[in-house]
Write a protein that binds this DNA or RNA. Structure first.
Lengths: 339, 339
DNA sequence: ATGAAAGCGCTAACAT
DNA sequence: ATGTTAGCGCTTTCAT
């Protein structure tokens, strides 16, 4: 391939200064239309290509946003990322995406890597086992925007974006109660994460509000891996007082529970009513179709990036609020309907 | 926040040259252990942080790989990306991920953006409607590694990584035939894409091999959006000779077909046997469970990045082959079993 | 083993 | 409207 063309080459060819070339290429107002045109056409003639490395070094800015998620391959997460990418792309930002694989150590490493590589901001959904948050201080200290989404944590100088999981959990539970359930089990993810803790809180609130009371037999905390389904089934089968409703913090896990319960000859919804969480595509494809809470992942991604970019642009407005809460929605399908 | 520490600051503090500092930090062999130690401890004492922008400019290398996919939010794609990220991360590479949203124009833009931003290599799965490939020439010309995966195209100086879709399509079809199907319909994605063209080819080959013959009523080409399911149902209902088998090029679409066919009182598999493609998680959750072809997405991602990185390291070996074909696997479940 | 200095390519403040 | 020039922070060749 031919030698790399720089603005100096263009400047020489055109008998102007490198500064003029730079300004022309960046459409600076103080350059005459004619000069700009000359520069631009010469640039394309010679196959000039900007060197982003130099631009970045000079501006100390990368136009890249870092993203850390627990895993890439979940429906919810990929939907969030799709929304993020769309907005970022339109605004001229690149997305550098990495996964913590639910490990705090990896999350720390990724945070450092992204910080070092000069991203302009960071978007994080926390790993299951993250318990300390010191690895984020470089961001807060250097006033680089930091946004937590979904699996959030309240940290100084950072924003969060979530749905109201307490209310959502409350509504899911109340729905089961309204369909006649008296002994409801909640399958939760790791309670260290506020998304799950909040749903659990909503669950308990609803039980108490309806005089049902809570005890530990009504909660199973798990990592929501499908190989844990059998534990749940065992719990249900061994329950002294028959369980007639299950509120699961994830649709995928709920769908597997339905399948396994059916194998054990439980009828859904007649014997046990089930509601999931997320409105994953599978929820409308399983039989019976799964009631759930809609969790607007795409929108969450969109808002997160809009928020971080408006922050980067120095706009202090709604988008750069300290905390954004999205609307969820109860979706009633067959798995929870009283016959 | 405190002023940024550079190697010059360290050099001054330690009364050595910036070069020595740089070499120490990079563990260059020609620096004494003692000096290295002094530099490193002073660096951490002062909170020194490398400036990747400067490193990149100096080395003309970013340690970043670009990825362009049609959409982020499909199970298959997110699985591929998970595999890619894992390997890239371990090798010290960042992944810059963007989506073409099935538009060639967007794909062109993204390709240019990633090229300009100085990625060290590019991994692409093509958009539905991509018909020309000139936008990739900057990569081939500048000997930057370019790898197509899944939705591939044979281009000079590029590699491809796929499964053998012809054989997979053949096996899926033959399976339906062996279960007694005589009039099989194939639902394909855009035939411009070789993944779909190849599956279709395998479909036809199997029909001919078993004396069933092919005509255009046995093919529906669609974008596989779920809102196209009704067209398929209509086609099946209006078919003169009853259709008794359907080979769908995507599990998600197949799952929706099952659901809708059941609504129309078709019994699956008694009346119509169905096989999908991908081994999406939904395939084992729907009722009846969906037969399918396993498509090793994670492994594909892993191999793609291993391949590109070994190329970047100058290793000419198996990993940097021109074309890698992964093993697929027929998975028989209830949706296609003869009763 | 270490130092000196020339890049890397672009931006932007300042000058004209 | 355009030119000049000093960075931006690090790498690396060439000396010593």
């Amino acid at each position: 391939m031919a030698k790399k063309i720089t603005i100096y080459d263009l400047a020489e060819e055109l008998k102007v200064s490198p500064g003029t070339v730079s300004r022309s290429l960046n459409n600076h107002p103080s350059i005459s239309k004619k000069t700009k045109q000359r520069v631009i056409s010469k640039a394309s003639e010679l196959g000039y290509k900007v060197n982003k490395f130099a631009v970045n070094l000079s501006k100390q800015k990368s136009n890249a946003l870092g993203v850390i998620v627990p895993r890439l391959n979940s429906y919810f997460m990929s939907t969030v990322l799709a929304g993020m990418e769309k907005v970022a792309n339109e605004a001229g930002y690149n997305l550098i995406i990495s996964q913590s694989l639910e490990s705090m150590e990896k999350e720390k490493l990724n945070t450092k890597t992204l910080y070092d590589s000069g991203v302009d901001g960071l978007l994080v959904s926390l790993a299951h086992d993250t318990t300390d948050y010191d690895h984020f201080t470089p961001f807060s200290q250097s006033e680089m925007p930091l946004i937590f989404f979904d699996r959030v944590h309240n940290l100084a100088n950072s924003s969060t974006i979530v749905i109201d999981n307490v209310t959502a959990g409350y509504e899911a539970t109340e729905h089961l109660i309204s369909e006649g359930c008296k002994n409801i089990l909640h399958i939760s993810g790791n309670l260290k994460r506020s998304v799950y803790a909040d749903r659990f809180q909503g669950f308990k609130n609803a039980l108490f509000a309806h005089g049902l009371g809570f005890d530990n037999t009504k909660l199973i905390e798990t990592n929501l891996d499908t190989n844990k389904v059998e534990d749940v089934i065992a719990h249900i089968k061994n329950s002294k007082k028959p369980i007639d409703g299950v509120f699961v913090a994830s649709d995928t896990f709920a769908a597997h529970c339905i399948k396994e319960l059916q194998k054990e000859n439980f009828r859904i919804p007649e014997d046990i009513k089930i509601i999931g969480f997320n409105n994953d595509p599978i929820s409308e494809l399983v039989t019976p179709s799964l009631s759930t809470i809609e969790y607007p992942g795409y929108k969450m991604g969109v808002l997160a990036v809009q928020s971080i970019i408006s922050h980067l642009n120095g706009n202090i407005n709604l988008q750069s609020a300290n905390s954004i809460s999205l609307r969820h929605r109860l979706i009633v399908r067959d798995s929870s309907k009283q016959k």
